[in-house]
Design a protein around this nucleic acid. Structure first.
Lengths: 219, 219, 219, 219
DNA sequence: ACGGGCGGGACTGCCCGTTGGT
DNA sequence: ACCAACGGGCAGTCCCGCCCGT
């Protein structure tokens, strides 16, 4: 669930080695705290019915400060602390792995990490994503952005035909993730997310096999 | 580009055969007029910089009336007059056609129709979708909704494994549409949209072939 | 005390003769009510210490509505109901009157009208103008705008040398008004405003006589 | 262009002869640098569109530090390094010069100094003053404050009728300055500012001659 | 159906006070 | 002592909802 980064360059500009880690860590802790309070209120009273002011009060901060940690109300649902790690994960992939398999592996790792800790909270977020249209929309956006980022990072030679193929496959796998999450939500998180994802990938493979590849032009 | 229907019940209320067509037609004309003015202003001053009030003034209506025709500012970009036709198109498909091929055919028909008339306006809308994150998000949402609707309509036996396969394939093809539109935008609409779509489908097929289907569990 | 008119054309566009007067009258009454509450709170707790929210609460409206009646917090002090009348007053001047005398007469009429009713409230506003820098600044702006408007309206042949002379004299008389108001404030409104204005005009005339008119270049 | 002094006490506190000049000089250099960056951004993107944060980034300081050098965003346009010199200039006037002529001479000297160096930058500032209402307002305020200061300094015997005369004349000449600057802006700085000022003074003198000085009371 | 009035909530920008680090 | 980061507060704008009269 990668969140868009608007103008975060300043924060990641590593000027002083010691404070950067510490400061960033502190920010992450605050973000987690705010998110926890927000999700609690959303579950109790609903997303639309919970105002920023209420969240701020619950988190013992001012409304103004809320927006310093999350650019919008939606982002408090979208954000998770593993987003920024994506870069490291990509670089950790073996160089000789086929890029498309790398994408699948990255997705599985991310899903697995998300599921492992905060399973309850993840379920709460997923429920919101499923039920609130604006959040669902933002989630699609984030997925798409993540797919684009991954495919760009893995494309050996940018702007060649290969990159489009990689990008499309990544987008398709993102759609599979979304669908798997939807299924996970529908059975209340009882099934393992990875299992749902794997099965859905197989289904998509089977589905795509039924499409012949020499398409005839329209009309 | 199917738009979500938030509170459409009121429109379908008057079940009188004669007026329904005429009234609906008049509404559509007004909608088209408002949309044209809005897109003109968006292109001139930017999406965020154009207020509903400015659109209303340009369209010679009151701000209040704007919301009678479009449920939100975003919808004035998302909406097009071919959306509601989707149902008819689905029913027009031959019964013996494989569902997955039906989806591809439906997409091609829709893209072709969109491209044929209002090419310039379509390009304006696409530019907005590409550049304004909130619109892009809503567009993904709409795409996803459309895919879900089509797959539900075409699934012979609902809630069986087959439906998931159909749904996933439809979602993947939606992602292809989005990517094709992105390419179309980048070369300023010079290439034929259908051609871009077909080529991208082939690319996706090729990409998916590189995924082996017996996935091993994570870690 | 003319207030700037940002985009008020819509309001003054007389579409339906009957409602326009009534509606506008109602708006004026509401504006007066809000202003009265605001001035009361400003006098009690100070300008900066009084929030829009407090004013809105005192006036039994929402903060949002406050901004429908006054474009900014400053305007609630600047505005008075005689501002829009200026146009009528200008046209009421005899055509054969020397324009510069017309300006003096207009100022005297306006001051007299302001002083006659709401003397206490006028004093309250003047006190704020004198003590709050931002309000003083806005007041100068409004004075200057009014002077420019009057001289433009009275200039027989626009863009001729005469217009500059008229404009400068109007600006100088505006400065006299400001000074007279300052004196009025300092002696707590005991002296008649018109008298202060007249005396100050005489003083300015005397002062200007001491300037020789063939200026020598600097250095 | 005298700027109001809000909280200048801190600067004048260190009465140590050696550091005062140096420190102050350094501060002035920083101020000039910030101002240059700000004016550049204002010209490029507009005043309202340029945030303090953007200025701070361009000047390589923190937003908080911006406010250490300028009390508000407006002041970055209003301020110029010649403001504080006004006191010296006043004292340099010959003691036997008529005060009113001293005022005129002071204005001419100041305008001449401003115009001589940074003509381009002065034009940029003037353009902003003309086009942004809030800046225009603050400029009037500053002008008025300067006039009051000069007249107070030159009045031989304070609080006598003479002082009012002096004050009013200074205010009128300030209005002339404002108008001359407006004319200068309109012809893009092609004409000499002093010439415009002198001609406008003559126009005002001529205009004031048309006012008879024995005003009849109102009503 | 249309217009208008009003309310409310998200969000931004300016500005200030404090703290901690150099 | 200067300065960066942080948190807070308020003005102001925009989208969008509801209710009323026509």
């Amino acid at each position: 669930m990668p969140t868009e980064a608007r103008s975060r360059e300043k924060e990641s500009r590593p000027r002083d080695p010691p404070p950067i880690g510490l400061r960033e860590r502190k920010r992450t802790r605050t973000r987690l705290m705010i998110q926890a309070e927000a999700l609690r209120l959303f579950a109790a009273h609903g997303y639309a019915e919970t105002t920023i002011e209420a969240i701020a009060e619950a988190a013992a901060i001012s409304p103004r400060t809320f927006f310093r940690y999350f650019p919008s109300k939606e982002d408090v649902v979208l954000w998770d602390e593993y987003d920024p790690r994506l870069g490291e994960l990509i670089e950790a992939r073996p160089a000789d792995e086929p890029p498309i398999e790398s994408i699948r592996a990255l997705i599985r790792e991310t899903l697995s990490g998300l599921q492992r800790r905060d399973r309850e909270q993840l379920l709460a977020r997923v429920r919101l994503l499923s039920s609130v249209p604006e959040l669902r929309a933002r989630f699609f956006e984030a997925q798409s952005g993540g797919a684009k980022m991954i495919s760009a990072a893995l494309a050996p030679r940018p702007n060649l035909p290969d990159e489009r193929q990689l990008r499309l496959t990544a987008a398709a796998l993102s759609a599979v993730v979304t669908d798997a999450i939807g299924q996970w939500d529908e059975d209340d998180g009882k099934t393992d997310l990875i299992r749902l994802f794997d099965a859905s990938v197989d289904d998509l493979i089977a589905g795509m096999r039924q499409l012949h590849s020499d398409a005839t032009p329209t009309r």
